[in-house]
């Protein structure tokens, strides 16, 4: 059966211009996203992993429509996002919603929970005042809150509770795609599990598609069907979870997986830890982005950028070793 494509990203690029410090200085830029292409199928969870500064959150923000891309095409349900007019863009924003990392700053401290949850519906002119209230009650009940939370302020809630409110808020418009940007990284371990379970339950109930962004490999592995690994703005490996974890191809993916401390692994893992640090995104290496740290770096790695190629079914890698 051919899977239905919900979202497709093609050759996406994003350069952040740095402010000029001198008047006649040539403006430089930070390469946040470089030639990223992938598809997300309907109903799946697409995980995006990478370390801080690799551009995974920027990618989420671009798809969520918060910042415009510098180059490239994003298609949602076969419609190109960049060519939409204002009205279509608004209806699109109904279909793509976001969940953010920090539960403490994602809710407006001056507004009551009820108001916050009604806002998406109000903005899109759905329902009368009474209906809004009823919908909010229903949704609150869905994630295990009683009606009294309608009149509470965010500061009365714990971190996990706020994150649940954040999730409910993104669900109010019944979107098709939810971009979850590090939804559990700021939470304690015992609360994390609750949120992950909730996300899974909701996915089943509302047939949601997730773009799940995280730096925590254990969590991404648990949540995702397919995973993209990002390094310095590029997608270096892309594949189904089983393939990626059982047979990681890119040296970066390999070291990333081996670097994660795992409670369940009994044997001491053979560490292929990377040396050095992530290079400055303002001056990325000319060739493969990993060439400064890669243990298997070859000559051509330093000068030529490897393309993303398909090694086995649905398993792509961007590395000279496999050319």
């Amino acid at each position: 059966m051919e899977k239905e494509i919900l979202l497709e990203v093609k050759d996406l690029k994003k350069v952040f211009k740095t402010p000029k410090s001198k008047l006649f200085e040539k403006q430089s830029g930070v390469r946040a996203i470089h030639e990223v292409s992938f598809k997300i199928y309907k109903g799946e969870t697409f995980g995006l992993v990478g370390e801080s500064g690799c551009g995974k959150s920027t990618l989420g923000n671009i798809i969520g429509g918060l910042i415009p891309p510098s180059e490239g095409i994003i298609t949602f349900e076969n419609k190109s996002i960049s060519t939409l007019d204002k009205k279509e863009a608004k209806s699109l924003s109904r279909n793509i919603q976001m969940i953010f990392q920090d539960p403490y700053s994602c809710l407006n401290p001056r507004k009551k929970i009820g108001w916050i949850l009604e806002e998406p519906l109000r903005v899109h002119h759905i329902g009368t005042k009474k209906e809004l209230r009823r919908t909010v009650y229903e949704m609150l009940h869905e994630v295990g809150f009683d009606k009294s939370y309608y009149n509470r302020y965010p500061h009365e809630l714990s971190g996990g509770q706020r994150q649940r409110i954040g999730i409910v808020c993104s669900l109010m418009l019944h979107p098709k795609l939810i971009i979850a940007d590090e939804p559990v990284s700021a939470l304690d371990v015992s609360v994390q599990a609750t949120i992950l379970n909730l996300l899974k339950d909701l996915q089943e109930k509302y047939q949601l598609t997730y773009l799940f962004i995280s730096h925590d490999l254990n969590v991404v592995e648990y949540m995702s069907d397919r995973i993209g690994v990002m390094y310095l703005g590029q997608l270096v490996e892309l594949g189904r979870v089983e393939d990626l974890y059982n047979n990681p191809l890119h040296p970066y993916t390999r070291s990333l997986i081996s670097a994660v401390p795992n409670v369940y692994d009994d044997k001491y893992k053979n560490k292929t830890s990377l040396k050095g640090e992530v290079p400055n995104a303002m001056h990325p290496p000319a060739g493969c982005p990993l060439c400064t740290r890669c243990p298997e770096c070859m000559n051509q790695c330093k000068t030529i950028q490897p393309p993303l190629i398909e090694i086995e079914h649905e398993h792509y890698v961007r590395c000279h070793k496999y050319l």
Partner: peptide, 16 residues
């Protein structure tokens, strides 16, 4: 702050 990003992603207009 993130709640402003959240409002944007919901589709709230700049003025609002």
């Amino acid at each position: 702050l993130k709640y402003i990003d959240m409002a944007k992603s919901i589709g709230v207009s700049n003025f609002r």
